[in-house]
Design a protein around this nucleic acid. Sequence first.
DNA 1: TGCGTTACTTGCATTTCGAAAGCTATAATA
DNA 2: TATTATAGCTTTCGAAATGCAAGTAACGCA
Lengths: 115, 115
Amino acid sequence: MKNKMAFKRSGCPITNSLDILGDKWTLLVIRDLVFGKKRYQEFMASSERIASNILADRLKQLEASRLVTRRAYQQKPARYEYVLTEKGEGLKPVLRALVVWGKAYFSITKITPTI
Amino acid sequence: MKNKMAFKRSGCPITNSLDILGDKWTLLVIRDLVFGKKRYQEFMASSERIASNILADRLKQLEASRLVTRRAYQQKPARYEYVLTEKGEGLKPVLRALVVWGKAYFSITKITPTI
DNA sequence: TGCGTTACTTGCATTTCGAAAGCTATAATA
DNA sequence: TATTATAGCTTTCGAAATGCAAGTAACGCA
């Protein structure tokens, strides 16, 4: 994993946010975390079918950006879970706004997450 | 330009939204449009220094997704401008949420857009 | 005739994505 | 004891996206 955006492109808060969130998967992982998912296989089970390597990469980036915390929930064998930090929880309004917009403009929307 | 996400990955409104908005540039172009920028060179002048081909591609995608309208503001020579549709304007709450989050968690944020 | 402006397009090297297969440690089962 | 299963990843490699630089087209102006 190489860091994708080590420098800041500008001082704009939108730009700073997109440097972390600006791709097709990161906010979906955060959505799952908001829904209470914690484990690797739970994220893998989502209907968007994220590739294993992409998920691992995103979880590492989210940890590096301090949006999630990784901790072992058991030893032998070591198993891990991911939890949103306060910074990560702070993205709920962004997700809510996306839900509102998505519902308003995509008729194919079937599932309506309550965040 | 090939279309990046012709099919829908799921019925989730967040997923549907990210199929259009999920990259590092699209929401920045929309931010500029919200600020009243209309012309190619105005978008090019933004401090994030978008590449010319990427800008052209994003404007085409935004038009295809019906978030912006392209129209000639003069003939001979033909010159074009871009304006947000209602669907595009509908993204303001998303941008506002990103500004709030970006301001809260990035100290390096200098510019504070008022959307 | 030559230069500047606007709105792009093209070429090409680098980077990222993504599907599939593989790996490691341990538990459960035959 | 050997095999299979489970969880949490990592590796490989071809395809697609990105981004820098240069080029193009149509016109106005000097």
